[in-house]
């Protein structure tokens, strides 16, 4: 059988802004292409720094980072960068263009794409993210959720294989947050993207394949999201709270009722009703 393709391989990666204060210490990681990995941890655990290293925005002080088999360094970064897209936290501060279409086109202009192709991609990705009707809008006329969709469209238009979401949903309202998660789910299901997300959001973590817990600059745990939410100690170390669905399952379990957390609360509700009427 063929080896699984790796999106990332980190070998003994360390990083520090000042030599006396190590932010990341000896990180070893392998991330399979097409998977969805969440990085969790308390403030100061190094997760944001790790995201910047993965995105090629910072260079490691020690160790090696391989992106799709190529080692990241000064020379290779220019070629690797188009493979890696990043969506950041503040919708306002990543809106570079003066209008939606200019913002989506910004990265494409830098790739020197011919105009026809830019126009086609801007339209295709704007439609994909349902912002096709907003192309001529100024950021001041858009909601936070819409701006974040623009950021995602601008990132996907570059056609990267890896997309890093750095707390991309944390400034959005509940509804927009749900919508962004849906986009991420679709991206993941399409199989075309490796997704790395940094988040506090329980639902977003639950939707991913794997949670990497960072603590004091090191990997404290590498578990499935459900394992993370069932481990109180891990949860408090990254200041998380399990989603309602998982807490409910646990409360029920402690009362002798065993249910499956399923995909959403509706599945839980059905199981519960069946359980009660089974008597």
């Amino acid at each position: 059988m063929k080896d699984t393709v790796l999106a990332y391989e980190l070998q003994q990666v360390s990083f520090a802004y000042h030599p006396q204060q190590q932010i990341l210490d000896n990180i070893n990681l392998r991330i399979t292409a097409g998977s969805w990995v969440t990085l969790v941890g308390a403030n100061g655990s190094g997760k944001s720094t790790l995201a910047k290293l993965l995105g090629g925005l910072l260079a490691a002080n020690a160790g090696k980072i391989y992106v799709e088999g190529t080692e990241m360094n000064q020379e290779s970064i220019t070629h690797l960068r188009p493979r890696i897209g990043m969506v950041f936290q503040n919708p306002d501060n990543q809106f570079i263009g003066a209008t939606v279409e200019e913002d989506i086109a910004f990265g494409l202009e830098g790739r020197c794409l011919p105009r026809d192709e830019m126009v086609e991609r801007v339209k295709r990705y704007a439609d994909k993210l349902e912002i096709g009707h907003l192309l001529s809008k100024h950021p001041a006329e858009l909601s936070g959720g819409q701006k974040q969709r623009v950021a995602v469209a601008a990132t996907l238009a570059m056609e990267p294989g890896i997309v890093i979401f750095d707390e991309a949903s944390s400034m959005l309202d509940e509804k927009a947050r749900g919508e962004l998660q849906l986009i991420m789910r679709e991206m993941s299901e399409s199989g075309g993207y490796t997704i790395i997300s940094i988040t506090h959001d329980a639902e977003e973590i639950l939707a991913s394949d794997r949670a990497i817990v960072l603590k004091d600059g090191g990997v404290a745990a590498d578990v499935s999201p459900l394992e993370l939410f069932r481990n109180q100690e891990l949860l408090s170390s990254c200041r998380l709270i399990a989603p309602f669905r998982v807490r409910l399952i646990q409360e029920l379990s402690s009362r002798g009722i065993e249910l499956d957390p399923g995909q959403d609360i509706e599945e839980v509700s059905e199981q519960l009703c069946r359980y009660i009427s089974s008597k």
């Binding site: 409360e251 029920l252 009362r255 009722i257």
Partner: peptide, 8 residues
Amino acid sequence: AERVAALY
């Protein structure tokens, strides 16, 4: 959970 257990 408490209510469901009671109902059961």
